Computed example of a mutant assay.
Amino acid sequence: MKESASDTRDTLDQRIARRVRELRAAQGLTLEQLAARSGVSRSMISVVERGESSPTAALLDKLSAGLGTSLNALFEAPRDEAPPSPVARRADQPEWQDPDSGYVRRALTPPGIAATLQLVEVNFPPGARVNYEVGVHRAGFQQQVWVMSGSVVVTVGGERHKLAAGDCLVHPIDQPISFHNPSRQAAHYLVAFSGPPTSRSM
């Protein structure tokens, strides 16, 4: 039987809940400590870890920054007994929609592989805006944004960049970043995120 959109959403929310718990436990952080590092309240973290909410992209970004990892790491599926595959088939790539802006992100990089580069495909609705208040725990991380169609305005700190199809922006992610689609058509872009190798042990 085909999985419905709501079933997929529930599955991803539960996956996120489990990953936040795992990553927090691996670092020996209490709820209070993660709240202080991320800027997300203890009660909200608790709700996320129980899978009782559909967190926004901005909130997940704060949590991943507080955990010193990437947003992609929060979407990783549980590792089974078989070794991770170096190939991620399109049908198996987790797709998630931000309940706030409506943007859809697809994680392209195979899960479970220790990698310094992660790829994410994004479909950004007309008029959509996402603000990321990136924390200090992301110093040394970097990303590139390559626009495949449409246009996107990316503001890094106080510097504004208007990107059209074919344009590519590289920037560190140790300061506030916002994405805005000012046009009447959807934008489609690729994000390449680089940083320390990610793995299930993070």
Results as ranks from 00 to 15, higher is better:
residue 28 G to K: 02
residue 44 M to R: 09
residue 122 V to Y: 02
residue 175 Q to N: 06
residue 95 E to T: 15
residue 5 A to D: 13
residue 122 V to N: 10
residue 186 A to H: 03
residue 169 L to S: 01
residue 41 S to G: 14
residue 170 V to K: 06
residue 177 I to Y: 09
residue 94 P to E: 12
residue 185 Q to Y: 02
residue 92 D to S: 14
residue 5 A to C: 01
residue 55 P to I: 02
residue 40 V to F: 05
residue 160 R to C: 01
residue 192 A to T: 00
residue 125 P to M: 08
residue 72 N to F: 02
residue 47 V to K: 14
residue 66 G to L: 00
residue 61 D to N: 15
residue 128 A to L: 03
residue 8 T to P: 01
residue 66 G to Q: 07
residue 53 S to L: 01
residue 170 V to L: 03
residue 88 A to Q: 15
residue 190 L to K: 07
residue 139 A to M: 04
residue 74 L to W: 06
residue 166 G to N: 13
residue 22 E to I: 08
residue 22 E to F: 04
residue 17 A to I: 00
residue 23 L to K: 15
residue 144 Q to Y: 00
residue 26 A to F: 06
residue 200 R to H: 12
residue 142 Q to A: 07
residue 135 G to W: 02
residue 80 D to I: 01
residue 38 S to K: 08
residue 129 R to N: 11
residue 98 D to G: 09
residue 163 L to S: 10
residue 3 E to M: 05
residue 130 V to K: 06
residue 174 D to V: 05
residue 13 D to I: 04
residue 145 V to E: 05
residue 55 P to A: 13
residue 82 A to N: 09
residue 20 V to I: 11
residue 25 A to T: 12
residue 59 L to T: 15
residue 15 R to G: 09
residue 192 A to E: 00
residue 26 A to H: 13
residue 199 S to G: 12
residue 109 T to D: 11
residue 109 T to G: 09
residue 111 P to Y: 06
residue 88 A to C: 10
residue 36 A to N: 11
residue 7 D to I: 00
residue 156 V to A: 00
residue 178 S to I: 06
residue 77 A to I: 02
residue 48 V to D: 09
residue 45 I to M: 13
residue 53 S to F: 02
residue 47 V to Q: 13
residue 85 S to R: 14
residue 177 I to N: 13
residue 58 A to Y: 03
residue 31 L to N: 10
residue 118 Q to D: 12
residue 133 E to A: 14
residue 40 V to I: 07
residue 131 N to V: 07
residue 139 A to D: 04
residue 20 V to A: 08
residue 47 V to N: 14
residue 137 H to V: 00
residue 70 S to H: 12
residue 33 Q to V: 03
residue 90 R to K: 10
residue 29 L to R: 11
residue 104 V to K: 14
residue 15 R to H: 10
residue 157 G to W: 00
residue 136 V to F: 07
residue 13 D to L: 03
residue 88 A to M: 07
residue 141 F to E: 03
residue 183 S to F: 02
residue 152 V to W: 07
residue 178 S to Q: 13
residue 75 F to D: 10
residue 79 R to F: 00
residue 17 A to G: 09
residue 110 P to M: 10
residue 195 G to E: 03
residue 35 A to T: 11
residue 153 V to D: 15
residue 186 A to G: 08
residue 108 L to M: 12
residue 59 L to A: 12
residue 26 A to V: 08
residue 19 R to G: 11
residue 87 V to A: 05
residue 60 L to Q: 13
residue 32 E to A: 14
residue 70 S to A: 13
residue 4 S to C: 04
residue 111 P to I: 11
residue 72 N to Y: 01
residue 30 T to H: 05
residue 125 P to Q: 03
residue 148 M to G: 06
residue 180 H to L: 15
residue 9 R to G: 10
residue 89 R to M: 06
residue 196 P to E: 15
residue 105 R to P: 01
residue 145 V to N: 05
residue 93 Q to R: 15
residue 19 R to D: 09
residue 2 K to T: 13
residue 111 P to Q: 14
residue 82 A to E: 11
residue 75 F to T: 06
residue 127 G to E: 07
